[in-house]
Nucleic acid binder design. Structure first.
Lengths: 389, 389
DNA sequence: GCTTGTTGTTTTGAAAGCGAAATAATAGAC
DNA sequence: GTCTATTATTTCGCTTTCAAAACAACAAGC
């Protein structure tokens, strides 16, 4: 990995970023990884230690030669808050400077909530997790399209009035720190990159399956946003015979989102399929019931999940042909089902890859759980952090 | 656009690259575009002029202030050769230092050719177009997969023994200049970027429709190659009801490549559809006949083309949702049909884009014609050129 | 004509970062 | 224990690049 910053402050912050990626490295290792002279790294590290952002660890090793002095982030340096919300719930986390989680919190979002009431909930969540420590930055991940440069959330259909919401401006009225806005699938991708399954992976796609389906595309270690921030909208891919959106053909989101899966389960049960689930007529299944049922091997649930996974696998197989990423991460509540959910995808992807494809991309499940999006949002703030001189 | 080179030579070469992108700019404009101090640009430009790579143009303008001294590439500085080959033909071009074409040449490739005889043809083509001028670099674009780092062509099914061909090594035996190898669709993408429809466009996809179908993905101004150089293989996307490669469903390449289109035309004609084409039973149509027939409005040809364009449009529509590129370029012999071929794609892509998509990507036809791949190959050599100090 | 405003280029001193050499700290050999 | 090999860090002089100021070349206004 190479980065050549223009001003000194930028070098300091990329030093910190490298340390985040892998703590406990020495000055020389840092210099090698960053393609910068050891002397320069020494200079900067000393300053960062003086400023209390880094600290030296133990010097230890069995090799020959002078043992390296390991460096680590000073957790005391300050903390960051990340917020993520979705159709039905809002999560917030506070992490210290070394990205350890200090505090977490979830709130539910109701169908009756409007843009204003959601903003209030975001405000409250930040206040609640931030405590009275020194706050260095806030990241907010929201569903739907965003303008990350201006800090405006453009549109999300499931919350009333959620259109051109100047979220960063609204939050800055209360919190006087840098605030960053991002789409939540992309946040989840960043979370994987920074402390999830994709640490050190430069090219990957994070497929988020929640109420909707979206992809966060990371290329050369950086999020790819596309024109008008619209990259990753694979939930809208039409599937089926003509794929042309004609009547009767569904989008991926209509086939394989959590929302769709819960509806399909209810439908199949209503049609009389055998299941251990207790369902109320006309109501979709509840996710809290479906996950344990899947783990217990409920045949109906597994069948629906397998079908959804196959659809996803076909889409992932196509993305693989187009982009050939190193890795695919599956995020969202279904990820915790592990290979029960992932194996059908792996099969399909392997089948769609051309024969000379030495090996198809690794398909892995996110391990970050419910707080992935919030962690990613915090990661954005962390990532952008630049020490004052 | 920003680039921050490490050593002086790298800055010189990126200066030259910027000048290629837009000639006739002044030192100050260059400095602004490259995010480098004007004083530094002055220093380097002076040296490049002393070395005969650049020269000053006229100073002219109507604005206030001191008129800028425009800079241009010195065509005399040397020249580059690009070679591209495909299932049936091999093209080579020589360009001068300012990328003006000096010489071009085509040779046909026979079904009986083997890897060795093709290498001979490449050698001959280079010798023929290079003449006795000072050669600065050679780019070679080949079909199939390549390892650009090692300079080895990995595999191509339509030429016998084309497997792990150490092309760069073989050519260097004869030509003692830097030699670069790339896949030919990616070369075409680079040609568009450097002197085609995508000058100044940072994010685009070039879809090449020839014997096969592939995509060159350019992100942030750079080719994206993917793991094992396998990105862009959209020809293998399965289409149709399940998209799972089951019997009876076709790949995009089987539906919309030039090869497939010619076969479909012959098939439809054999089934008795009305056409102005003269066809021999059991033989595919000839491209040289089909293009004029399409321009003349032959109904059968137009119908087949429209169907292929619709398939392509669906795939492009999906790429658009995933990547949201600024622009899509269609390259290959069918590109010259213009909107007769492109309009069906545009329709489908617009239909597949989500409603809030302000505007779908521009879909344009390559204007580089038969020599697009060869020009791209030359562009790679040009691009990599680094002045001796 | 002369002055003023504007923009492009060059000069000049300072800063950032490099590379080589010096120094430091350890393990293992003796 | 001392010496040597090895690796990490720091020192120091030098190159690259910057930023600000000086200088140059023009248009427009007087």
């Amino acid at each position: 990995m190479k980065m050549k910053p223009k001003v000194a402050a930028a070098l300091e912050s990329s030093l910190i970023q490298h340390l985040r990626l892998r703590e406990g490295v020495s000055r020389v290792e840092l210099a090698r990884a960053m393609d910068v002279a050891p002397s320069t790294v020494g200079l900067y590290v000393d300053r960062l230690i003086r400023n209390g952002l880094l600290r030296e660890g133990t010097k230890a090793r069995g090799q020959a030669g002078r043992p390296p002095i390991t460096l680590e982030l000073n957790p005391e340096a300050g903390h960051f808050v990340g917020v993520d919300f979705e159709a039905r719930q809002l999560s917030a986390v506070a992490v210290d400077f070394s990205q350890q989680i200090l505090e977490r919190r979830q709130t539910s979002i109701r169908a009756s909530d409007t843009a204003d009431s959601v903003i209030d909930k975001i405000n409250d969540a930040i206040t609640a997790v931030a405590g009275r420590r020194s706050l260095l930055g806030i990241g907010v991940a929201v569903p739907g399209s965003v303008d990350d440069k201006r800090g405006v959330a453009l549109h999300y259909q499931f919350i009333r009035n959620w259109r051109n919401v100047p979220l960063v401006r609204r939050l800055r009225e209360r919190f006087n720190v840098p605030i960053y806005l991002e789409n939540n699938i992309r946040s989840m991708a960043l979370a994987e990159r920074w402390f999830g399954q994709c640490m050190g992976v430069d090219d990957f796609v994070c497929v988020g399956i929640r109420s909707g389906i979206g992809a966060g595309v990371v290329i050369k270690g950086e999020l790819y946003r596309g024109k008008n921030n619209l990259a990753g909208e694979i939930g809208g891919w039409y599937r089926g015979c003509d794929g042309d959106g004609a009547e009767g053909f569904a989008t991926l989101e209509q086939q394989a989102s959590v929302r769709a899966i819960l509806a399909q389960i209810a439908e199949a049960a209503a049609a009389g399929d055998e299941t251990t689930l207790k369902l109320r007529a006309g109501q979709p299944a509840a996710l809290e019931d479906v996950l344990p049922a899947a783990r217990a091997g409920d045949p109906l649930v597994l069948r629906v999940l397998r079908r959804a996974a196959t659809s996803l696998g076909q889409v992932i197989g196509q993305m693989n042909l187009l982009l050939s990423p190193e890795q695919i991460v599956i995020a969202g509540p279904l990820a915790e089902l592990g290979s029960a959910f992932l194996d059908p995808m792996r099969e399909v992807v392997a089948r769609l890859a051309p024969p000379l494809h030495a090996e198809p991309p690794r398909i892995v499940a996110s391990q970050l759980g419910d707080y992935g999006g919030a962690l990613g949002a915090a990661a954005i703030a962390v990532h952008q952090f630049m020490p004052a001189r």
